[in-house]
């Protein structure tokens, strides 16, 4: 998969009940390069989940185009939703195995479970997991399908900071082992700078791209909070428009 172009001219939710029609996205256009880690940053409720649902093919009611599309070999998607969305009546392992497409061996699950430190939990039902564990299972499920694009919708929200940091570094390790493009939605700028190759700032309403900014801190230096903070300060100083989003 070389690159994917996301070009959404118009996404409008029809009137429902007392609510008037609501244009969620207008003229949003960007390119996701091969094996690139992109963070989408924007205020809460600006339509980021709508965007991911369109890219995932869950929402086809929009004007625009995702290329390559189904005729051109649509990218395989791994989707980590905002809440883990595990089937409570299936074990951790069954939850992952159910998502596996044909042709991917079962042993993938074992290595991913080991990488996320969850091997002991594979026969447990999700209700017995902590939120951090459930999130990790959801990430494993998305990785297991060997996606061309991994979509993550604020996957670390409501985790305590140490757990979030741990899951974040596990995510990066997996990504380095199995590179593919990542679209990571967040409203936390520090998190975005720590993770991304490139930041895309989104504004609303309706949602559109405000600016695209590459992150040039070497990956090795990103554990250093001072470096991240310095980048953040500079970013806000150089792009006053962004400040209004945060």
């Amino acid at each position: 998969m070389t690159e994917v172009r996301i070009d959404i001219q118009d996404k409008t939710f029809p009137a429902a009940g007392d609510a008037r029609p609501h244009q969620a996205i207008a003229g949003l256009d960007f390119i996701l390069h091969s094996n690139e880690f992109v963070c989408l940053v924007g205020p809460s409720g600006c339509g980021k989940t709508t965007l991911l649902n369109i890219i995932a093919g869950l929402d086809r009611d929009f004007r625009g185009k995702i290329t390559p599309d189904e005729q051109g070999g649509a990218p395989r998607i791994g989707y980590v939703f905002q809440n883990p969305r595990l089937l409570p009546w299936r074990t951790v392992r069954e939850n992952i195995a159910l998502a596996l497409p044909e042709g991917i061996p079962d042993s993938t699950i074992d290595s991913l479970l080991a990488a996320m430190n969850l091997s002991d939990m594979q026969h447990v039902y999700p209700e017995r997991l902590s939120l951090g564990m459930s999130r990790r299972v959801a990430i494993i499920r998305a990785f297991a399908v060997d996606p061309d694009i991994l979509l993550l919708d604020e996957p670390f929200v409501s985790l305590d900071p140490p757990t979030a940091r741990q899951v974040r570094s596990l995510l990066l390790r997996l990504w380095e082992q199995r590179p593919h493009s990542i679209l990571f939605v967040t409203h936390d700028l520090r998190e975005a700078i720590t993770l991304a190759d490139r930041l895309i700032f989104l504004n609303a309403p309706p949602m559109h791209v405000l600016s695209e900014i590459p992150v040039d801190i070497p990956r090795a230096d990103r554990d250093d909070e001072a470096a991240v903070e310095a980048f953040r300060q500079q970013l806000i100083a150089n792009h006053p428009k962004i400040k209004t989003l945060l």
Binding site: N53, A56, G57, L58, I77, Y79, F81, N83, R85, L87, W89, R90, L98, A99, P101, R141, V145
Partner: peptide, 24 residues
């Protein structure tokens, strides 16, 4: 609805969706 969406995004298909998402 969340679980049905999950099943759709992971291409469960009709049979799997019924057995593992709907029936339980």
């Amino acid at each position: 609805q969340d679980l049905l969406e999950m099943a759709r995004s992971y291409h469960f298909g009709r049979r799997k969706t019924f057995l593992h998402v709907v029936w339980p």
